[in-house]
Design a protein around this nucleic acid. Structure first.
Lengths: 314, 314
DNA sequence: ATGAGGACATAAGCTGGAGTTATGAGCAAC
DNA sequence: GTTGCTCATAACTCCAGCTTATGTCCTCAT
C-alpha cells in the first residue's frame, strides 16, 4: 500500500474527488423533490440506482448528504451546502452545453450568430440559455472570430446577427451598443501592486512589463491605443485564459477585460489595480447589415442582450 | 415548482451531452501543453487513453477540438472556445472540492471555521482555494450555521474563526467587517418590474407578495426590519437557491443577497429592480472570541478575505 | 389490527466506457 | 539512414453504474 487515501491533494485530480455531473444532477433533483425515488424517476434511472449513487457520493465526500426516512429524504445541513456548490457546477455545465450545441448545429439553424471571442466566451452561453428558456425550439449556430470575420459573415448573408467588441464598427453594418466593457489591470493577491492605494498612472503602466494578449487581439489593440503603442509585454499569450492563468500564478500584472475576470476577482484569486488617466473603456455592440434590422429569433436574442435599456433605435 | 421541464433537448440530461470532468481536465491540459501525450502524462493516463478520450469528446460534441499533427496538437478555434467554457466547469468543481474537503476533515484540522450559510455558500470556497494556493498543507474544517451557532462554536473553542452576516455582532466576540452585502430585488426578465425605470418605493415593496426565505433566516430578518416587519410572502422557501430558482422561473419578484445572484444577473436570467428608501445593506464580518486575535492559519485566512484594506484593528 | 402503499436498502447479474499494453505510421533533426 | 517525437489503432481487462427482484420499515386507512 504505497499511497494513502487522504493526502493534501492526491494525484487523482478533480474527477476523482468530485462526483460526476450525473450524480450532481441527481442530488439537485433529490433536493428539489425530497425523495430518492422521485429524483430517480426524474433523471430517468431506477430507485436502487439513485440510492446507490447518492450513497457512493456520500462515501466519496465523506459527508452525509441526505437524511433518509421511510417517508422521504431531506438534505442534511452539509448536504444543502454541497447541493448549492453542486448547482454552480451544473450551471456551468448548462452554459457549456448551450454553447457547444450552437457550435455544432451549424447547418439547419434558424438563428446564425457570429461573435467576437470575448463575447462568445463570456456572454453568449448565458444568452443562449435565456433564449432557450424563452424559445426552446430555436436552433442556434455560432461562429467565433474577430471583428472582420464577423462583418464578412454578416455581409455574405451567412449570419443573422453579430457581436463585436472593437472600438469602431465595420463598414456596411448597423449597430447597437449592448454593454460596456473596460480593460482592467489585475495581479495575484501577493503582488506589490495588489496593495496599492494610489491609482497607477499611464506612465507606470507603460513602463512595466505586463502579461498581455498577442498583438492584433482586440484587447491588445485597445491597450496599445490607450498607452500610445507603448505597452511592454512580459509575455504574450494567445488566449485570454492563458493570460488569466499566468496572472493568477503570480507571473506579473495583466491587462484583461473586466468580463473575463469577474469570478477571479470575487474569489480573490486576482486583485484589481486602480488605474487613472488611461482610456480603457470599450463598447460591446450587436451588429447587422445596414438596413436589415434583425427580425424573428435574431430580434429575440438582441432584446435579451440589452437588460434595462429602453427599446432600440438603429 | 410545477413548471414544465425542458423538452427542447433530449432526455439524456446534461451528463450525456457534457463531457465528464476528467475529459475536461484533459482538454485543459492539452490546451496548455500543446500535446496529447503530454497532457496524458500530466493527468496520469497513457497516451492512447488520452487520444481516445479526446476523440470521443469530439464525437459527443460534434465539433473538432484539436488539430493533430505529427509534432503536436493545437486547439481549433472552436476548441479554444470549448476549452474556455470547460474551464468554468472545472473551476466550479475546484470550488466544490475545496468546500467538500473542509466539510469532511472535521477532526484533525489546523483551522476550524464556522460560517453563516450565505458566506459558506458563496465566498468560502473561493477563500479556501486561495488559502490552499498559499498554504497547500492547511487542513480546514467548516461548519455552517446561523449567527448563534457560529458564536457558540467560537466560544466553546470548537472553531478558530467565524463569519457572520447578521446586523449585530453576537456578544463575547470581536469582529472585523470584511465586506458589504446588500439585499436586492430581482425578477425574471419577463416580469413587469424588470422594465421599470423609476425605483420602487418601500411601500410598493411591502405591498407586493414576494418570494422570500423563511422567517428567521438572516435575509428575511434584514428585509423585515427594513420594511418594518411588513414583508408579504408570495411563497416562503428554505434556501437561497430555491428562492432563486423560483424567481428565475418567473414566479414573482424575490429579495436576495447581492452575492447570491451575481451570475444570474450577468447571464440575464434575473434582472435587478432598483429600490429606494429601504435600508437593505448589511455587513459581512469575521468574528472571533474577544481577546483571542486570530493567529496562524486563521490570520492567514482572515487576511485573504479582506482584499485591499490595510491591517486589522479589533 | 391488519393490510396496502410508499420509500429506501440489499443482492446478483449485465454492459459499456475507459483504462492498459503493444504496435504502426508520419514528420523533424541530426 | 536512424533516433525521437508525435498521434492512431487493435485487443484485452476491469470496474462503475445500470437493471430486475426482493426485503424491511414506516404510515395511513380500513
Amino acid at each position: 500500500m504505497s499511497n494513502e487515501e487522504e493526502r493534501a491533494t492526491p494525484p487523482g485530480s478533480l474527477s476523482h474527488r468530485v462526483p460526476d455531473l450525473g450524480a450532481l444532477e441527481l442530488l439537485l433533483a433529490v433536493a428539489r423533490l425530497g425523495s430518492l425515488g422521485g429524483a430517480a424517476r426524474e433523471v430517468g434511472i431506477t430507485q436502487p440506482a439513485a440510492s446507490s449513487r447518492i450513497r457512493s457520493m456520500e462515501r466519496q465526500l465523506g459527508v452525509a448528504l441526505v437524511d433518509r426516512s421511510p417517508r422521504g429524504s431531506r438534505l442534511t445541513d452539509a448536504g444543502a451546502l454541497v447541493t448549492d456548490w453542486a448547482r454552480r457546477i451544473v450551471e456551468a455545465a448548462e452554459a457549456f452545453d448551450a454553447g457547444a450545441q450552437a457550435l455544432r448545429d451549424r447547418r439547419d439553424s434558424r438563428l446564425r450568430v457570429a461573435a467576437s471571442m470575448t463575447i462568445a466566451e463570456y456572454l453568449l452561453p448565458g444568452w443562449l440559455l435565456a433564449l432557450r428558456a424563452g424559445r426552446p425550439d430555436t436552433a442556434v449556430s455560432l461562429l467565433a472570430g474577430n471583428s472582420a470575420a464577423v462583418a464578412e459573415r454578416l455581409l455574405a448573408g451567412e449570419a443573422d446577427l453579430g457581436f463585436v467588441e472593437g472600438v469602431s464598427v465595420p463598414p456596411g453594418l448597423d449597430s447597437a451598443v449592448i454593454a460596456h466593457d473596460r480593460l482592467i489591470v489585475v495581479t495575484a493577491p501577493g503582488h506589490a501592486w495588489a496593495r496599492r492605494r494610489r491609482p497607477l498612472e499611464a506612465s507606470e503602466l507603460a513602463a512595466t512589463p505586463l502579461i498581455l494578449r498577442e498583438k492584433g487581439s482586440g484587447t491588445r489593440q485597445v491597450l496599445d491605443a490607450a498607452l500610445g503603442g507603448l505597452a511592454r509585454p512580459l509575455i504574450e499569450l494567445s488566449s485570454t485564459t492563458a493570460v488569466k492563468a499566468a496572472a493568477v500564478s503570480g507571473a506579473g500584472p495583466a491587462v484583461l477585460s473586466e468580463l473575463a475576470v469577474g469570478e477571479e476577482l470575487a474569489m480573490r484569486r486576482l486583485v484589481r489595480v486602480p488605474v487613472e488617466g488611461v482610456a480603457l473603456a470599450r463598447d460591446l455592440r450587436a451588429v447587422w447589415p445596414t438596413g436589415h434590422r434583425p427580425v424573428g429569433p435574431a430580434r429575440e436574442l438582441l432584446s435579451l442582450t440589452r437588460g434595462k435599456s429602453g427599446p432600440s433605435g438603429a
